[in-house]
Simulated assay, not measured.
Amino acid sequence: MQVLLASPRGFCAGVNMAIDSLELALKAFGAPIYVYHEIVHNRHVVEHFQERGVVFLEELEEAPTGSTLLFSAHGVSPEVRQKAKERDLRAIDATCPLVTKVHLEAIKYAKEGRTIVLIGHEGHDEVIGTMGEAPEAILLVESPEDVDALEIAHPEHMAYLTQTTLSVDDTSRIIARLRERFPLIAGPTKSDICYATQNRQEAVAKLSADADLTLVLGSQNSSNSQRLAELSKEHGVAAYLIDGPQDLKPEWFEGVETVLVTAGASAPETVVEAVLDYLKEHYDAKIEPRLVREENVSFPLPRELRQLASS
């Protein structure tokens, strides 16, 4: 078996920053550290920190008054920040700067009196946080059909934003429909979809043509990982989203000569290596790295942790 190992893959700069922040908080303040929602959407990462005394919360009330709380990479609403302040929590903001960009755009458009159309997945942590910046002004759409159903009182005062981890192609279709229906709609000068999401999708789009099967490392609740599997299928190549080698099924590999392996932006490289080891052991796999685009992006630690990191 030949294995095409996609690059770039795995952790993005925002995930690295969030994980480094949690590591540093554990070192500085000790367990328990509380995190609002999962630090990133990956089972292995979450379980790794749970074993070290990190507690992941869905409700702020679960964090004891005065304890240390870290906001995840997906961002939170102003309401959550205020609640943390009222409970005297030591809050550390590990929101990805690219998510913060979308929040700031939402605030700007709301102040301009625009109706904001947010393209995203209902219930996703990032979407909840963004909508919380201007709940009265934001409408959520997930498809061109949702755009067709919109009824806007003042179409001349509209703007759109997007979740950062969406399918580039799907989002482009929705934006095109928005511009068709609402020609005066404003939008961000630079795409809200993050560089890592775009790069990983580009790699799958280019490399899947040479493969019979695509394996995407990532958890089921990872939006950007889901998109990678969907993209491979759209290119006519079967794909499976897996957490690790324990999810692999022998029947997937019947008649398969070439496998593309990649990983979502929240999947650690250790799970990629575990899958490669499995394929080597069971299928005598030969690994061929395929570089599509270089990545050299890094984000600074949260302000609350920078001094600790330098000391």
Rank of each mutant, 00 (worst) to 15 (best):
A106Q: 12
V147S: 02
D146R: 02
T95H: 09
E59T: 15
L118R: 09
G120R: 12
Y283G: 01
I185V: 04
A209S: 15
E251W: 15
P32N: 01
R177W: 10
V76A: 13
D20A: 13
H124I: 08
I19Q: 01
K286R: 07
F29K: 06
Y240D: 03
H157F: 14
L89M: 08
L213R: 08
H103G: 10
V147G: 09
Q82L: 12
D148K: 14
P155W: 09
V272M: 11
S72H: 09
Q307H: 10
P135C: 08
I107S: 10
C12A: 07
T162W: 11
E269M: 10
P183S: 03
S266G: 05
E122K: 15
T95V: 05
R303D: 10
V297E: 08
A94E: 03
R90M: 12
L150D: 02
F49H: 02
L161E: 04
T171Y: 11
K83F: 10
T95G: 02
I19A: 11
P32K: 03
A229K: 05
A149S: 10
D192G: 05
R293M: 13
A309F: 13
G244Q: 06
N42E: 04
S167E: 05
G218N: 04
I242L: 11
G123N: 11
G123M: 04
V272L: 10
